[in-house]
């Protein structure tokens, strides 16, 4: 490894605390099996995905319906008809949670897919283009990477207002910067491998090299990173919603539910209105983390050393 490369590796720009090493240590061995923690994580993720898809159909009430129209008071304790109690506007928390699941998970998933679409294309493109193009694109990318994501989010929301498409595109573009770095590093590392050299010498075209030589080797680390990125996007979207700049009322998502119901804590009335949505986010992100750890441990990636 040349000295320049060594430096580049050592001071990889800040990536929200996640360091990844690009290529697996060893070949994946045998069939993939989840450990018990992986199963737990996968079951929780499956549960939330189910709720996200069928939540609105299964919810006992509409998103903004009042379970007890004749008895209006905020933050009622759980009882029959509202199993998790009611929120600041006396709406059913359980139903709002089920409606919100689809938005929180759907927006985050769409944004992560978008981030991957942009990041992988540009990253692998940069890795195989001329050094000059690569440097320009990478420098621009680094400038965006060196900003706190929440600040970028705030500026965009201030400029164009908040709506679900805006949230998806904003989060997608912001997190594409991180994917770009990973995809580029992967591409570069694989580009200098012997089998790629051999393909080049054989006279294979650029497209062939990307799809047949680079992609199969890059897929596994990228998939593992997809899970991690999804976690950060969920946290990002939820934080924006929590600040009142994400999903706008009367629509609910988990982050905005925490915000709406903060009063329940400060008046000492009830913890469920805040705890329920916060716990929903935490269980989802921690569960994804468990699955990601399992997969990366399996593929022998250094990612598992985070544990």
């Amino acid at each position: 490894m040349t000295k320049k490369q060594e430096i580049e590796h050592y001071v990889a720009p800040y990536d929200e605390g996640v360091s990844f090493d690009e290529l697996p240590d060893s070949e994946p061995t045998g069939r993939f099996r989840l450990s018990w923690s992986g199963w737990l994580g996968a079951s929780i993720v499956a549960f939330w995905v189910f709720i996200a898809i069928f939540g609105p159909a299964l919810a006992p009430l509409g998103e903004n319906d009042l379970p007890f129209p004749d008895d209006y008071s905020e933050f009622q304790s759980p009882r029959e008809g509202a199993w998790l109690g009611t929120d600041v506007s006396d709406r059913d928390i359980l139903s709002r949670l089920m409606y919100g699941a689809g938005r929180t998970i759907g927006i985050a998933f769409a944004a992560t897919v978008l981030a991957y679409f942009i990041g992988v294309i540009l990253g692998i493109g940069a890795a195989i283009s001329s050094p000059r193009v690569d440097m320009v694109v990478s420098r621009i990318n680094d400038a965006f990477l060196s900003l706190p994501t929440i600040m970028l989010g705030l500026v965009v929301v201030a400029a164009v207002g908040s709506s679900i498409p805006v949230l998806i595109v904003t989060a997608g573009v912001i997190y594409a910067t991180v994917v770009f770095r990973l995809a580029r590093a992967l591409g570069q590392e694989i580009m200098v491998m012997d089998f790629v050299e051999a393909a080049k010498v054989r006279g294979e075209g650029r497209w062939w090299i990307i799809t047949r030589e680079i992609w199969p080797n890059a897929a596994m680390p990228l998939l593992t990173d997809f899970g991690l990125r999804l976690i950060y996007v969920i946290l990002f979207i939820s934080s924006l919603s929590f600040l009142g700049l994400g999903v706008q009322p009367p629509q609910s998502d988990w982050g905005s539910m925490v915000r709406e119901n903060l009063g329940a804590l400060s008046y000492g009335q009830s913890v469920i209105p805040v705890l329920a949505p916060a716990l929903a986010i935490a269980t989802l992100t921690v569960a994804i983390n468990l699955v990601v750890d399992d997969i990366s441990a399996h593929s022998g990636g250094k990612l598992s050393k985070r544990l």
Partner: peptide
């Protein structure tokens, strides 16, 4: 590993529950 993936307001909520609702010291704001 669990805390790193959880949002800040989840940690904050747990602390409020513990200190304000269980131990009854301090204020949620």
């Amino acid at each position: 590993v669990s805390l790193v993936a959880a949002p800040e307001f989840f940690t904050a909520t747990l602390l409020v529950i513990f200190f304000v609702f269980v131990l009854d010291i301090g204020n949620a704001i």
